[in-house]
Design a protein around this nucleic acid. Structure first.
Lengths: 220, 220
DNA sequence: ACAAAAGTGTTGCGTGTACACCCATGC
DNA sequence: GCATGGGTGTACACGCAACACTTTTGT
């Protein structure tokens, strides 16, 4: 037996203090006019990794983004025209880096838009399940991973970092304890720069030191 | 584009102090006479969960086993006759419970056999990658999960439990510290029974208290 | 001056780790 | 009586949680 086979992309970012996911408004049946994850069919002789990169680019204009496989979804009824197996991938991106690159190069969808994960519209297919699974996955891997830094610009304040942790973990953290812990991690670089354009005391900026991070976690 | 679609099962157990995986000797081309994971094609109108249960039963004789999705593998060249997408599932079973139930009801394979994960034979397709991924997954989820208890008989000694942890984590643990930690978990029942048939001091038996476990971990 | 967010220390408690010897049993 | 694994305690270091006030800046 054979099945159609697609890739769907869960692209997450952090913006305005919350986690957001990139959705596409469909321009085709089924689910025309519904919001859905950007995704499309895999070609016959195409490796999955290549298909993921191609589909991501065609649907969103994004390139060179590391995508992690989330899971396969293959419910017989998930697509009204018969089973379509989809392999969902997820990626974390920095809003500043991508916001000018995003464009729907496909007539298959009408527009792309970021939605806070706490305020999702009705979604096509089982895409809501897919997003929820990606958030679970994220929650499990926050600590001791580069996850938070993939969501932030290269220079960020400690408050922003704390907000990312809070959004990922779904709970409030204590400011002093958070800063103490972060300091002890040893892979944050304190910069001699400050926030600009705020009407209150400007916060110091920090950056993530990838080299130090890998040095610390390379001994298994 | 359409693709063939199979399920492969990674069935793990703990026996003779080591982790073992159930493999099948293939009786069909390609890879005739090679060892492979038990697996087969999904039917057209079959839900994945149903397919997993059916294939597991047909290939191994096992029933009512909870299987977790591991990942989809879809390399164009993984099968010599063209792409066959496989969704790998994994499960943990207790040797005592299954050892008399295992039988290959399919002519598709010649025999089933348990292999220590540290001594795998050459494997068909990309099945070695699949097994390695399952072991990685396991390692990440040992602590604070029921994983170890799924691999052990209902009554077990603390030394057996420690061996399971050591096999899963790939490292040696200190006996006293291990026991202290285990005691503090609060979901082990100390039984008034002892090991039998050993030529040394018989160890006390313990059992896993599922109710207490869930009580402890239910507050999120 | 006021609003807004930045920044800063101490203490108690629990958990992880290192480490070595006696005990019970079957043969 | 000997071989084999079962079973036990203490001391130190470290990380986590609880908790409130002063400082800086722009308007």
């Amino acid at each position: 037996m054979q099945t159609h086979f697609t890739i769907d992309c869960v692209i997450l970012t952090f913006d305005e203090g919350q986690l957001k996911v990139l959705l596409a408004e469909r321009n085709e049946y089924p689910y025309k006019d519904w919001w859905a994850l950007p995704g499309y069919f895999v070609n016959k002789y195409e490796e999955m990794a290549d298909a993921v990169a191609r589909i991501l680019f065609e649907m969103t204009g994004l390139k060179d983004i590391y995508m992690d496989q989330l899971a396969a979804f293959a419910g017989v009824k998930r697509h009204p025209e018969g089973r379509i197996l989809t392999v969902a991938y997820m990626a974390l991106v920095q809003m500043e880096e991508v916001k000018n690159k995003i464009s729907s190069g496909s007539t298959y969808m009408r527009q792309l838009k970021w939605f806070p994960v706490t305020e999702l519209p009705d979604l096509a297919f089982d895409h809501k399940d897919i997003i929820e699974l990606s958030l679970d996955r994220l929650k499990k891997t926050v600590t001791f991973s580069t996850t938070p830094y993939e969501l932030l610009p290269a220079k960020f304040t400690l408050t922003q970092l704390q907000q990312v942790y809070e959004a990922l973990l779904h709970k409030q953290l204590d400011k002093r304890n958070f800063r103490k812990k972060i300091n002890n991690l040893g892979y944050l670089k304190e910069l001699n720069e400050f926030q600009k354009g705020v009407s209150y005391r400007a916060a110091k900026l920090y950056s993530f030191d990838k080299k130090k991070f890998h040095k610390i976690f390379s001994q298994d």
